[in-house]
Amino acid sequence: MNDQTSKTGDGIHENHYCCVPECKKWGGFGFTRSKAETVQWWCWEHYPHKTPVRAS
């Protein structure tokens, strides 16, 4: 059974690793300002757009 609902993608998974050169972790957090830019991927440790956790 095919779970792909549109014909726009080819269904190929791409591996994204952290964009910090010395880091080899999985880059599960991508960010771009527009569709015209290339997406940059970071691991959680290096992700610059995360919000700080507040102590209760």
Rank of each mutant, 00 (worst) to 15 (best):
N15R: 03
F31S: 10
T51S: 09
E45Q: 08
C18V: 03
S56Y: 02
M1Q: 12
H13C: 08
A36I: 06
V20Q: 01
R33S: 12
D10W: 05
S56R: 08
W26E: 04
E22W: 08
R33I: 05
D3G: 12
D10T: 14
K7M: 10
E22P: 04
T8A: 13
A36M: 06
D10V: 09
G9W: 04
E14Y: 15
P48E: 07
K25M: 14
W44R: 07
G11K: 07
G28Y: 05
I12Q: 13
A55F: 11
C19H: 01
N15F: 10
P52Y: 05
Y17R: 01
M1K: 12
E22S: 14
F29S: 08
C43V: 05
E45L: 09
F29K: 14
C23H: 08
N2C: 12
P52Q: 13
S56E: 06
E14W: 09
G30Y: 01
W26H: 15
H49T: 02
S6P: 02
A36W: 04
I12V: 15
C19P: 00
A55W: 03
P21C: 06
K7R: 10
F29E: 05
E45S: 07
H13Q: 07
Q4F: 11
C43T: 03
C19R: 00
E14R: 14
Q40L: 11
D3C: 10
T5G: 05
P21T: 14
D10L: 06
H49W: 07
S6W: 07
G9S: 12
F31K: 15
G27N: 00
K24W: 02
T51N: 06
G28R: 14
H13I: 13
V20G: 00
N2K: 13
E14K: 14
H46W: 08
C19I: 07
C19D: 01
F31Y: 15
H46T: 06
K35R: 09
C18F: 01
I12L: 14
V53F: 05
D3W: 10
H49M: 07
V20T: 14
A36D: 13
H13E: 11
V53Q: 07
W42M: 03
V20S: 01
C43M: 08
S56L: 03
